[in-house]
Measured scan of single mutants.
Amino acid sequence: GKELVLALYDYQEKSPREVTMKKGDILTLLNSTNKDWWKVEVNDRQGFVPAAYVKKLDP
């Protein structure tokens, strides 16, 4: 199944490769191989958020 992450903080995108999220958002995790930036999908948009700003949810 899909892996989900919880947004721990608000994040405002600073480049087109990033996405904005609000604290409490549930996002689909697409790629977590980079320790600093994780690729997520939110509202049909894909992009990166700081890994420290999200937490993996237990399945």
Rank of each mutant, 00 (worst) to 15 (best):
L8Y: 03
W37M: 10
E41T: 09
L27I: 07
T20Q: 05
W37Y: 15
Y11D: 01
K35M: 09
K55Q: 12
N31T: 08
Y11R: 03
R17G: 12
R45I: 06
P59K: 09
K23N: 06
E3Q: 07
P16W: 04
V40W: 00
K56N: 06
L30W: 06
D44L: 08
D10L: 00
L57K: 04
Y11N: 01
A52N: 12
R17A: 09
V42K: 15
E13N: 06
P50E: 01
L29A: 04
T28D: 08
G47H: 02
P16C: 10
N31D: 15
L6D: 02
D58V: 09
D25C: 10
R45N: 08
Y9K: 15
L27A: 08
K22G: 06
Y53M: 15
L27N: 01
D25N: 08
V54T: 05
Y11P: 01
E13L: 06
W37Q: 10
K2Q: 08
D10Q: 02
V19I: 15
W37G: 02
A7Y: 00
S32K: 10
L29V: 13
Y9M: 13
E18F: 03
V40C: 06
G1F: 05
V42C: 13
L29T: 02
V19H: 04
M21V: 12
T33E: 12
V19L: 13
K35I: 07
L57P: 05
I26S: 07
M21L: 10
T28H: 05
W37I: 08
N34V: 06
R17N: 14
I26V: 15
E3A: 05
Y53C: 13
E18C: 05
D58Y: 07
K55R: 14
E41V: 10
T20V: 03
W37H: 04
K22D: 07
N34K: 10
G1K: 09
N43R: 14
L30T: 08
K22L: 11
N43G: 15
W37S: 04
V40N: 00
D25Y: 03
K14D: 12
L8I: 15
K2R: 07
E41S: 13
D58C: 05
M21A: 03
R17K: 15
V19N: 03
N34Y: 06
G1P: 01
K14T: 14
A7H: 00
Q12E: 15
V19P: 02
E13R: 08
V49I: 08
Y11L: 01
S32M: 09
K14H: 15
V40I: 07
L6C: 15
V42I: 12
K14V: 07
K22N: 14
K23A: 10
E13T: 09
N43H: 15
V54Y: 00
E41M: 14
R45F: 05
K23E: 15
Y11I: 01
K56V: 11
A7T: 04
A7N: 00
L8D: 05
S32L: 04
T20M: 04
S15R: 11
Q46V: 15
L57Y: 09
L4C: 03
S15M: 09
V40M: 01
M21E: 00
N34I: 05
T20D: 03
L6W: 07
E3T: 04
M21W: 00
L27K: 01
K2N: 07
K2F: 06
V49R: 00
N43V: 08
Y9P: 02
K39P: 01
L29W: 00
Y9N: 14
T20F: 02
E18P: 05
S15E: 11
D44C: 15
T20H: 03
D10P: 05
K55A: 08
K23Y: 04
G24Q: 02
L30Y: 04
Q46Y: 05
N43D: 10
S32V: 07
D10N: 07
P50G: 00
D58F: 09
R45H: 09
A52F: 14
L30M: 13
P16T: 14
K56G: 05
W38V: 12
R17F: 06
K23S: 08
A51I: 02
R45P: 00
S32G: 12
D25E: 12
P50A: 00
E41R: 09
A51L: 00
V42Q: 13
Y53Q: 06
K55P: 00
L8K: 11
N31C: 13
I26W: 07
D58W: 07
G47C: 04
L6F: 07
V54E: 00
D10I: 00
L6R: 11
E41Y: 06
Y9F: 09
K35E: 14
P16K: 15
T20W: 03
P16F: 07
Y11M: 01
A7F: 00
T33W: 08
Y53V: 09
G1Q: 05
K22S: 14
N43M: 13
Y9E: 15
D36Q: 12
D25H: 06
R17S: 11
G1H: 09
L29R: 02
P59V: 10
L8E: 12
V40Y: 01
E41L: 10
N31F: 04
W38R: 02
L57S: 06
L4K: 13
A51Q: 07
V42D: 05
V19C: 08
R17Q: 13
K56Y: 07
L27M: 14
K55H: 05
K14L: 11
F48L: 15
L30N: 04
V42L: 14
Q12N: 08
G1L: 06
L57I: 13
L4W: 04
L30P: 01
I26D: 02
Y53H: 10
T33H: 11
D10H: 07
S15C: 11
S15N: 10
E41C: 11
M21H: 01
Y53W: 09
K22I: 11
S15L: 10
S32R: 10
G24T: 01
K2A: 11
T33A: 11
W38N: 02
P50T: 00
D36W: 08
V42R: 13
F48R: 06
V5A: 15
V40D: 01
A51G: 05
I26M: 10
E3C: 08
L6T: 11
N43T: 10
D44F: 10
L57Q: 10
T33I: 07
L29H: 02
D58E: 12
D44G: 13
L27F: 06
M21S: 01
L30R: 07
V54G: 01
D10M: 00
G24S: 03
Q46C: 12
K55G: 08
L4G: 04
E18K: 04
E18V: 03
R17H: 09
V5M: 06
K14N: 14
P50N: 01
K35F: 07
V54S: 01
P16Y: 06
K22W: 06
E13F: 04
L29Y: 02
K23V: 15
E41P: 00
G24A: 03
E41H: 05
S15V: 04
L57N: 04
K2E: 13
V54P: 00
Y9H: 06
G24P: 01
S15Q: 11
G47K: 03
P59A: 09
W38Y: 07
G47F: 06
M21N: 00
F48K: 05
V19T: 09
D36F: 14
G1A: 14
D10K: 02
T28A: 13
D58H: 13
G47Q: 02
L8M: 09
D36S: 10
K22Q: 15
E41K: 11
L8Q: 09
T33M: 08
M21Q: 02
K56W: 06
D25L: 03
D10W: 00
S32W: 07
P59W: 04
P59R: 12
E18M: 03
F48H: 06
G1C: 11
Y53L: 13
Q12V: 12
P59Q: 15
L4V: 10
L27G: 14
R17L: 09
E3S: 08
M21C: 06
P50R: 02
I26G: 02
K56T: 09
A52Y: 08
V42E: 04
V54M: 07
T28M: 09
L8P: 01
A7I: 00
S32A: 12
T28Q: 14
V19E: 01
T33S: 10
A52E: 14
G47S: 02
V19D: 00
K2H: 05
Q12G: 10
L8N: 05
P16D: 08
D10G: 05
G24R: 02
T28E: 12
E3G: 05
K35H: 13
V5C: 13
K2Y: 07
K14F: 04
T28Y: 06
K2G: 07
R45Y: 05
